[in-house]
């Protein structure tokens, strides 16, 4: 009985404090991104190839409709030929061929077909990802005046990095707190500056059907696309972590030896 009372009291206190915390929250300021743990965290962290493949699928099937990935070439997606990616060279070839990229003039010097459309050709691994819009104006016109930023460096270009990107994606389209007015044509996202975002919620459960059979929950998709975009922003992370370990060992050894030499040389220095 006694414990029950204490528990109820504690619960009431908790509700009261969290209610006052909510009341104190400044709704014009974004919330801190949700802290996640990632496979590439820490000095030994590495990307998870299967996760990168899923993340690529999310980029390809969803984000690439609005966001460019200008700095990344198809070749980069390969783990062969010195690449740091997640697919074999043969897979990359097939992926590239699935995209249409602007072609040069044909043998008669034409740059458009008979209907006046620019000539296109299938992509090759050396091509970069084609951008979804021809220019900034076209991108803004299609997105209610807002510009979907290029995603090649997005993770490194935002305070909070991967946690921020993950939070934006899961926070987009959530229910605004009582009293918050969402601007016409925008969506509530507690992690975005000003909390009104022009991006329609890009992901829900089952936005994609993963070819590896993983269940496509919103959380899973958001984590996967974040992994892919982190790789896109920092493709040499694994090399860096691996080489770093060797260098740290070497420097420790070197410092140790120099310390012993120092002690030996100075022993009879007085």
């Amino acid at each position: 009985m006694m414990t029950m009372k204490v528990l109820t009291l504690a619960f009431a206190a908790l509700v009261a404090t969290s209610a006052s915390a909510l009341a104190a929250e400044d709704l014009s300021q974004p919330q801190e991104p949700i802290k996640q743990s990632w496979s590439w965290d820490g000095p030994f962290g590495m990307y998870d190839r299967a996760q990168l493949q899923r993340g690529f699928q999310v980029y390809k099937e969803v984000c690439s409709a609005c966001h460019s990935l200008n700095l990344v070439s198809f070749n980069d997606l390969s783990y062969e030929n010195g690449g740091t990616g997640m697919f074999s060279a043969a897979q990359v070839k097939a992926i590239a061929a699935g995209y249409k990229v602007p072609a040069g003039p044909d043998e008669k010097g034409n740059t458009t077909d008979e209907n006046g459309n620019p000539l296109m050709r299938p992509g090759i691994p050396a091509d970069h990802f084609p951008a979804p819009f021809a220019n900034e104006e076209a991108a803004r016109a299609a997105n209610g005046g807002a510009l979907p930023p290029d995603q090649s460096l997005l993770v490194k270009a935002r305070e909070g990095g991967p946690d921020y990107v993950y939070s934006i994606v899961v926070g987009d389209g959530t229910k605004p707190p009582h009293g918050f007015k969402v601007i016409e044509g925008k969506y509530y996202d507690p992690y975005f500056p000003g909390r009104n975002i022009s991006m329609p919620p890009p992901l829900t459960n089952d936005s994609v059907t993963y070819s590896d059979g993983t269940k496509a929950t919103l959380d899973q998709e958001a984590r996967d696309i974040t992994a892919f975009l982190t790789w896109a922003a920092e493709p040499k992370l694994e090399d860096r972590h691996r080489l770093g370990f060797g260098v740290m060992l070497f420097m420790l050894l070197l410092s140790g030896l120099l310390f012993l030499s120092y002690r030996k040389v100075w022993k009879d220095a007085h």
């Binding site: 000095p43 860096r240 770093g244 740290m248 420097m251 070197l254 410092s255 120099l258």
Partner: peptide, 17 residues
């Protein structure tokens, strides 16, 4: 040399991690 190596160790830890 010893202190340079120690300093470089900290510096390189930032470079790599």
């Amino acid at each position: 040399s010893f202190y340079v190596a120690l300093f470089a160790l900290v510096y390189l830890a930032f470079v790599f991690y």
